[in-house]
Amino acid sequence: MNNRYQKFLLFAIGIVLVVLMALSFGGRDRVTFIESKLGAVLMPVQKFFTSIGNFIDEKTEPIINVLNYKDLNENLSRENEALKEQIVTLTMSQKELTELKDLRAALKYVSEDEESGYISCNVISKDMGNWFNMFTVDAGSNQGITKNSTVINGKGLVGIVYEVGESWSKVISIIDQKSSVGFEMLRVTDDFDGVLSGTTNYELIGELFDPKATVKEGDYIVTSGLGMYPKGILIGKIYEVVSDKDLVLNRIKVTPVVDFRKIDKVMIIPYQEANE
């Protein structure tokens, strides 16, 4: 192979790769047959090694965190007290809600479809690099998962499905720098809206649409239903309100309720066109 031909070949490969990057950027609607099957072959092996990793992590975590238990106990005690107070308020609200539901039934209102059909799955592999926060799960189009389906776990919002294979899916988490989530405050009144985006450092930064919005540290935020995510999924807790006169919109910093370092099981809510 002469030198000129070699250079031309390298240039051509470079062009093809750039085109490929542009075409696949943002996630493909459907992956190819080979990728899908290859994923299906690799999945059991990855699942096996992930379970070993989770086992080791589970067994070593108490040893690593032994010095933090005192602080953890104190925090839990404080949280427990606050939750007891909340129970009283929520019980009263629940009574009111039951009455309203009875009233709705009496008036024969057609209820909106509640979100159902969660697909439970395991995280089988995590991003090898340090730039993005992506992972794959052991469920795909065979289980009814589609692109842009919402991914949650027992604590709250995890992310969104990016690409789907037959028996695996690629998920991008909300802490990823390029993720954005519409949110609102978890309040009975003054439920200000805004948009959050990830920072890669396990925190989220958000902007409130209303310049006069009053929010405080410790407030919880949930998805607003704007965009891909269904309404009412817990996202996190505000830990800092940035008050800068130069900023037109109020900015908040949020700690996600989900521990992204320790995700092993998730649930997926299949994306429905009505969510758009």
């Binding site: 690799l42 092996v45 990855q46 090694f49 992930t50 070993i52 990793g53 080791i56 992590d57 089988i124 592999s125 995590k126 991003d127 090898m128 690099g129 340090n130 794959t136 450092n201 396990y202 370092r261």
Partner: peptide
């Protein structure tokens, strides 16, 4: 390459220090 991919994306994730993982590729 396959073994490296499988191990790096699963069990070697345990060795994240300061949220960075070594890149065996």
């Amino acid at each position: 390459a396959f073994v490296n991919f499988i191990l790096s994306s699963t069990i070697l994730q345990l060795f994240r220090i300061n949220d960075a993982v070594p890149n065996f590729c």
